[in-house]
Nucleic acid binder design. Structure first.
Length: 188
DNA sequence: CTTACGATTCCC
DNA sequence: GGAATCGTAAGG
């Protein structure tokens, strides 16, 4: 039986948590999927991080306790992150892609007529497929209720790393992590 | 109040 | 390559 990670799992540096999240299962109602791609955003000196310019109403949850969802809107889309590190330290991990496991028919209905591998291969695409939006801002991901991330109990020795995507600064930092040979990873 | 700008996606 | 599209943050 898969269980949520405990609080201490999320208390670490985003560069540790991001690869550790690969293989874990994102669950929301009937939909679930294995996390196959993540990105780390650092609490300190990371000009690409939303928290770089300090605490605002939008980024407040990043400064709160770890393991809570940071959902933000960009243009017409939503993205899901997990706040990590201890309270007051705004590190976070962006969930960039999952591989669908259950509720695929539901995802199809929400995503429209797209190829199977395009269902959840992007941060905004997976939010649409899982019906994650701003209402999930701040929700605790360490409980089984509602939106949750469950531990698959496996270790993933072969994690691929490379530059983050979609940003305009610090573009060469190798803070993107994904499972090799995964069809559902974006930009592959 | 006004303005600039996206941690994206989809279509041409 | 370019538009969609609107909340957020910063500045007047």
């Amino acid at each position: 039986m898969k269980e949520p990670f405990d609080r201490t799992f999320y208390e670490r540096d985003p560069r540790e948590v991001a690869p550790a999240l690969l293989g874990a299962v994102l669950v929301h109602g009937p939909t679930s999927g294995m996390i196959v791609e993540t990105e780390a955003y650092l609490a300190e000196r990371d000009p690409a991080a939303h928290a770089f310019r300090g605490k605002t109403p939008r980024t407040a949850v990043l400064f709160g306790p770890p393991g809570h969802a940071y959902v933000y809107r960009t243009r017409a889309h939503h993205c899901l992150n997990v706040a990590v590190q201890e309270e007051g330290v705004p590190g976070c991990v962006l969930i960039r892609a999952v591989a669908p496991v259950t509720g695929i028919a539901t995802m199809r209905r929400r995503r429209g007529d797209v190829p199977e591998r395009r269902l959840t291969d992007g941060p905004a695409k997976l939010c649409q497929a899982f019906a994650i939006d701003i209402r999930h801002y701040g929700v605790d991901l360490t409980t089984r209720d509602g939106l949750a991330i469950l531990d698959d109990g496996a270790r993933h020795a072969t994690v691929q790393t490379g530059p983050r995507v979609g940003i305009s600064v610090a573009t060469t930092w190798p803070l993107r992590y994904w499972l090799p040979a995964e069809r559902h990873v974006a930009h592959l």
